[in-house]
Nucleic acid binder design. Structure first.
Lengths: 240, 240
DNA sequence: TCCATAATCTGGTCTATACCAGATTGGAGT
DNA sequence: ACTCCAATCTGGTATAGACCAGATTATGGA
């Protein structure tokens, strides 16, 4: 029934898919090693790796550096237009969240940030770098750049929870409008290392630039997600 | 100056990047063949392909099936929350758009569409499948499912321009609210073939589900974009 | 029991080679 | 000039092997 000119690695993809279904492997479970799979399916490691990469691109499996291949959990639904914190999203969907602050510092506005925020180069700015987990899988890393003019002393607070909740409750800050950018990219450098993926792994970039009522810059959020980790879901035009 | 434990294919990536800059290759220009590059950089074709794939993931170059590698054009800015037609977007940004209708038909609502639209299974529905180009590069394919109850005779119109414009001007239809979903996926089957990319090539999926004031289903739009083709850009909360 | 270390297992990288199929090109014949 | 077809060029697929580095596991001594 299968087309004979169908490449071996795509046939293997289908057989692996079926095998995973038959074995009822579930979220975060480990597959047999590449060597074992290549024997079981009578092919070479190179070809089995091509098939595995295919399933990886499709989001069925993911790799953990030099540890093996695992079944990808369900995507997290995510609405970047809302201020709801990450932790609430995750728990609402029945997962367990965790946030790690990798570093936080007071630094100076670089030129690229000056261009999009309107702040002068060299102005003080908070910079927080965090990693977020769902069910102990690191799904994204996030850079927050926050205008200290509106929230002095922020860095002495804990940043392992929602920054927006803190800004709202402690400093009475709410964004009036936002510029959001989203596009696929390759995870590289610090972001790839922090997420324990290969250089060039597929990712999704989400940037949120927030301003207050006076048009002053409040915060910039740059998120780097694993490509298979989320499903953006937004409702537009519904006021109730 | 380079770390000695840096893998060869990443070093090659850097050298290729520099070489492309030095040669001032620009949008849609072709690179030398893989065999030529592997000689020029004193390595094998397999390794040069790894480096090329890296640059492909980063969006610097793209491949055209069995023709060669080309420089990726700038990303198209795109706001899926607005009703502005594709053609207008593209021309506003200085590119030339083109749309091809691959097929259009009157069919029946399948179960998956019934679940998200609220229409009964088997209800008549228009189905249009189109391919969109920017500067003669096919960037996306798109499935439109339109409720014929609101726009009888739509299929006899030309569908090579904006469907929304037609719905608005000819049938006085405007969506009251929309559910939008966005996530990265692998392009497969019909979508991969229509875009002339390999099975499993990285892509971005955008789905828009539109309802009218009464909450009736108007239209479903499922777009499959090349991963390097667009940058989603949305402004939220700004009423002026 | 604990901890340091060695053996082992895993995916990651790389070479060298071969053949295939689709796309392009060049030339012969009209 | 034009058309058709064969030669050639391209990336795509596949084999068989090798070695590396990080992660895990087993082991043996304190």
């Amino acid at each position: 029934m299968s087309r004979t000119d169908y490449p071996v690695y795509l046939q293997l993809r289908d057989r692996l898919w079926d095998w995973i279904e038959a074995e009822q492997l579930s979220s975060q479970q480990r597959l047999p090693s590449e060597r074992e799979l290549s024997e079981r399916f009578h092919t070479t490691r190179v070809t089995i790796r091509q098939a595995l990469s295919q399933l990886e691109a499709e989001g069925l499996i993911f790799r953990s550096n030099r540890r093996g291949w695992y079944i990808t959990p369900e995507r997290l639904r995510y609405d970047p237009s809302r201020d709801v914190g990450f932790n609430r999203y995750v728990t609402e969907q029945g997962f367990s969240p965790r946030t790690e602050t990798l570093f936080k510092q007071l630094t100076e506005v670089p030129s690229w940030l000056s261009e999009i925020s309107g702040l002068d180069v060299g102005t003080p700015i908070y910079h927080v770098f965090r990693r977020r987990y769902v069910d102990e899988r690191g799904l994204l890393v996030e850079h927050n750049y926050i205008n200290p003019a509106h929230c002095p002393g922020l860095l002495s607070e804990s940043t392992d929870l929602s920054i927006w909740q803190m800004l709202r409750e402690k400093y009475d800050l709410t964004p009036e409008h936002r510029d959001i950018e989203i596009y696929p990219l390759a995870l590289k450098g610090l972001e790839a290392e922090s997420l324990n993926v290969n250089q060039g792994a597929a990712g999704l970039y989400i940037q949120r630039l927030s301003f207050d009522q006076r048009g002053d810059f409040l915060e910039l959020d740059r998120e780097y997600w694993l490509h298979d980790a989320l499903k953006i879901s937004v409702r537009i035009g519904d006021r109730h």
